[in-house]
Amino acid sequence: MNGKRKLLLAATLAAALLAAVATAAPAADPVRPVLSLSVEVRKEAIVKDAGGKETTEWREASDVRPGDVLRYTIAYRNGGRTEARAARIVDPVPKETAYIPGSAEGKDAAIAFSLDGKSFLEPAQLRQKVRRADGTEEERQAPPETYTHVQWTLLKAVPPGGGGTVSFKVRVR
C-alpha cells in the first residue's frame, strides 16, 4: 500500500515511479525494453505561392476526399531500461486507401510489404495470380495498390531513450 501511494504522489518523477513499480510488483522484470508507438496522419496540400510556385504542406487531417494523399508517420520510442532488439513495426494500409509506390521511409530500416498481413517481401518478390480470359493463370508482380501492410524491420537495436520515425503515404480510394 505504501508503494502505491508513492506512485500516485510522485507520478511525474520517473526515477521514483520506477522504484515504486519495482516495489509494488517485484515479480515483474523491471529491466526490459519498452517500445511505445504513436501514429499520426497528415493530409497533403499543394500550396501555390503568389509566383505560382507549388509547395507541399502536410496538414492535420480530420476529413479527406477521395484522391487525397495521406501520410502516416509512426513514431517509436524505447521508454524501457534496456535496448529493444529485432524491432519490427507493422502498419496496415487502410483498405479505403492505396499505397503510393516508393513512399515508405524509415532510417536504418528494411522495408517490406505484404498482400495478406502474414508474409512480408520486397516489391519484386510480391507475386499475385491473375486469371486470363482463357481461364489459365498468370503470375505477376503485385501492384502497389494491392499491398495490405507495410513492415519496417529496424536494423539497429533501439537503446533506452532512443527512438525514431517511419512513414508511408497512401491515396484515398
Partner: peptide, 15 residues
C-alpha cells in the same frame, strides 16, 4: 462518411 482508421503494431526482443 467512411472512417479510415489506422493503428500500428510492433514486436521486439530484449537481450
Amino acid at each position: 462518411n467512411t472512417s479510415i482508421t489506422n493503428q500500428a503494431t510492433a514486436s521486439y526482443k530484449d537481450s
